[in-house]
Design a protein around this nucleic acid. Structure first.
Length: 454
RNA sequence: UCCCCGAUAGCUCAAUCGGCAGAGCGAAUGACUGUUAAUCAUUAGGUUGCAAGUUCAAGUCUUGCUCGGGGAGCCA
């Protein structure tokens, strides 16, 4: 007997006789002579209603079938005489595959808080909201690859383990096989200190300067003790890198990319998205449409400071050229002033890492951040320093070890080209597109300080 | 890491001045019904996060710890 997924059955135009579904019971409504089951198999948000009459041979099996149990049901798909659904499965056979004790099964038919569900991360994808999130996450991942493939980019698998102890992006996790970590790193597995990557950028630049247009998309690790709803110790980042591209090309790519992902989900994941439109953020659909319809603003840092100074707002942290912008400043720009996504670019070089290209003014580098209303920084990127002497001077000035970057420097020695790239935090994008306010709720098993369950 | 708030039944919460541990939902049982977050009735369900202290008496006050939430810093 052919197994059908619930998604297909709910969207079909024809009746099916003699099919089978497999899934988990969301609820059971019992009568004396028949029972209704709501069965979800994860293929889509909606459940398939099953009606089982007491006359079927296997009706006894239903006694132990409760919320949470897994079942295999054979029957005929027929038009539902009841209200609320077009189709239902008239069961000819019901088999319980796995029992779920209703006294202890933690998911009830009612709404749960995100905090509670986070404590049962192994079961939360059986809820409507979380199954929707993780289907959207899967589809968005696919869209990332499709976007880049359509415009001729190649996917590069940059390493997870790295030997450079300062990639300029926060604290790193040490990787070791040594029992005694006080021993010299030369005795360790790699013969030197090893870490989990904080960015694939330095590696992927090499492939941009050979394959031309590339990206990497993989896990990224930050050991920073950040306790906020926007930070995780392990997250996924998308980092495109483009040869023969300047900072303006870079911003255009980021804008096209963000819009493509949103449009893809609007086109392909309507049903799951609507859950978030209806129950998570009533204004979400408008926000997404607004982003799609907007030309993202682009202003230089210098300009942004002037806007902030002239705003008349009372900021907790005063602004002036040379200081990094605070959350309150970013929010003012994106939410109050522009009311749409805004790129801020050409930052003072004193607050940015060594690899960013220095501008002719001697004060700024070709860095850019994309600020989104209500989300903050979604993208950070730059044009890279492609002049060997300038790069070497910058490495030295920041007190880094030139020896560690010899291969990175050689990229500038042999056939150097202007090139640019950025990093987009995949979870932050998902937060934006779903309205979910905690990063721990858009990643299957969150890794955060003092939290390594599951 | 810093600031603020919180932790009571499986879940969400209440408990007045320090004085008998409560409700809704969920669950079990029964009734009823082409039902649909079904409905109605009954029942069970507690080391009040952990450790100490003050007190005749602590869910309530004090101290420490753990965990969670919000904000900040850092960032994606």
């Amino acid at each position: 007997m052919e197994r059908k997924r619930v998604k297909e059955l709910l969207h079909t135009d024809e009746q099916f006789a003699g099919i089978k579904i497999q899934g988990w019971v969301r609820s059971k409504r019992e009568s004396k002579t028949f029972s209704f089951l709501e069965v979800n198999d994860g293929s889509c948000l909606k459940n398939l209603q099953v009606i089982a009459d007491e006359t079927i041979e296997t009706y006894e099996a239903l006694k132990d079938v409760n919320t949470g149990a897994s079942v295999e049901i054979e029957g005929d798909l027929v038009e539902s005489p009841g209200k609320g659904q077009k189709w239902e499965l008239k069961a000819t056979s019901v088999k319980m595959v796995g029992y779920a004790d209703p006294e202890t099964y933690p998911l009830q038919k009612k709404r749960h808080t995100d905090e509670f569900l986070r404590q049962i991360s192994h079961l939360r994808p059986r809820s409507n909201k979380y199954s929707a999130i993780f289907r959207l996450r899967s589809e968005a991942s696919f869209a990332v690859h499709q976007f880049f493939r359509e415009i001729g980019f190649f996917y590069v698998h940059t390493p997870i383990v790295t030997g450079s102890d300062c990639e300029g992006a926060g604290q790193m996790f040490r990787v070791t096989t040594m029992e005694d970590t006080t021993k010299p790193a030369a005795e360790d597995f790699f013969g030197k200190a090893a870490y989990l990557t904080v960015s694939g950028q330095l590696n992927v630049e090499n492939y941009a300067c050979s394959l031309g247009n590339v990206y990497t998309f993989g896990p990224t690790f930050r050991a920073e003790n950040s306790n906020t709803p926007r930070h995780a110790a392990e997250f996924w980042m998308i980092e495109p890198e483009v040869a023969f591209a300047d900072i303006h090309d870079n911003m255009s790519l980021a804008e096209d990319f963000v819009k493509y992902l949103i449009q893809f989900l609007m086109d392909n994941c309507r049903e799951d998205l609507e859950l978030f439109f209806n129950f998570v953020d009533k204004g979400l659909e408008e926000k997404l449409k607004h982003v799609l319809a907007s030309d993202f603003a682009r202003i230089e840092y210098r300009e942004a400071i002037k806007i902030l100074e002239a705003s008349g707002e009372k900021f907790e942290y005063p602004v002036s050229f040379g200081v990094d912008m605070q959350t309150e400043h970013e929010r003012y720009l994106a939410e109050q002033y522009f009311k749409k996504p805004v790129f801020v670019y050409n930052y003072p070089k004193t607050i940015k890492p060594f690899y960013m290209r220095q501008n002719d003014d001697g004060e700024t580098v070709a860095a850019m951040d994309l600020l989104l209303p209500h989300v903050g920084e979604l993208v950070g990127g730059s044009q890279r320093e492609d002049r060997l002497d300038v790069l070497e001077a910058a490495i030295e000035k920041m007190g880094l070890d030139m020896e560690e970057y010899w291969w990175y420097a050689e990229l500038r020695k042999y056939g150097s080209v202007p090139h640019s790239g950025f990093g987009l935090g995949f979870e932050r994008f998902l937060m934006f597109v779903t309205g979910v306010s905690n990063i721990r709720d858009v990643i299957p098993f969150a890794r955060t300080p003092k939290n390594l369950d599951f």
